[in-house]
């Protein structure tokens, strides 16, 4: 509960900073939605040529894009701003300041900076998701919706864990600036995992679960067996979050600070 209050306080501060300059505010809002608009237009262009992509109809693909946008918004607002700059704080020693805060280090590291306006993507994604669900030939039941909500939560947690793993590598190699790579890899989730071929699909679902984390909740809503998706999603999340925290703690032991 205390962590949620802290998160709320840093979010509120970041939100007030966003409103401080009108021109910056306009650019930030526009930046937050243009990526999703592009993803949507690209998907529509694909379905201009075909009625099915890797077994996914247009409405099902809209559900997928909607979930991608929802998770991308949360990621861009709460996860990326801090973790993409984390390696720099190890290199220049400013991580010291975070270590002194009276909160778990993994939490302080994640909540250093936020861009609340990126949640515009999440709102846009919810609209696309609802449009997609409305276009399905059947209505998902309450169980499928519940599973999808849990799996979207898992996708956010997986995304955080993946970014933390990548950031933690900086403890061993301070020159590893892999944030641009993570951002590019994230885009593989825009499409059904099936487009990547069988072996790559397995890697992107279970090893680097970038496609799986979006495809699994979408599958739960689009008529696939929700139990299988739930088991796969929750197991992946627990595994990757545990790995991320372990790696982070090990890495932190190697950190020597700015003044040592």
């Amino acid at each position: 509960m205390r962590l949620f209050r802290l998160l709320g306080a840093t979010f509120s501060l970041a939100l007030r900073r966003s409103f401080a300059h009108r021109v910056n505010f306009v650019f930030d809002v526009a930046q937050s939605v243009i990526g999703i608009v592009t993803a949507l237009l690209t998907t529509l262009a694909v379905y201009h040529q075909t009625s099915s992509l890797a077994g996914w109809s247009r409405a099902q693909a809209l559900v997928l894009i909607g979930i991608f946008a929802v998770v991308s918004g949360v990621r861009a607002a709460l996860i990326e701003p801090s973790l993409s700059r984390f390696v720099g704080t190890i290199r220049d020693g400013t991580l010291d300041e975070v270590l002194l805060r009276p909160a778990p280090t993994w939490f302080s590291v994640t909540c250093r900076e936020q861009t609340p306006l990126a949640l515009g993507q999440t709102l846009l994604g919810l609209g696309i998701l609802i449009t997609g669900v409305a276009g399905l030939p059947y209505r998902p039941g309450p169980a499928a919706i519940l599973v999808a909500v849990v799996l979207i939560g898992c996708a956010v947690a997986l995304s955080w864990a993946f970014s933390l793993v990548v950031a933690s590598l900086g403890f061993w190699a301070g020159r590893f600036e892999l944030a641009p790579l993570t951002a590019s890899l994230w885009d593989v989730g825009r499409y059904p995992a099936g487009v990547y071929g069988r072996s790559l699909q397995t890697v992107l679902t279970y090893v680097i679960p970038l496609a799986g984390m979006i495809t699994l909740p979408a599958q739960a809503l689009t008529g696939h067996d929700p139990v299988t998706s739930l088991v796969a999603g929750v197991s992946l999340t627990v595994g990757l979050v545990a790995l991320a925290l372990l790696l982070f703690r090990r890495g932190l032991r190697r950190y020597t600070g700015a003044t040592s």
Partner: peptide
Amino acid sequence: AGQILPPLIGLAVWRTVF
């Protein structure tokens, strides 16, 4: 990687379509 991943994703998508 940031430059080459989008065309690779495009290749995967459009090879699935055609």
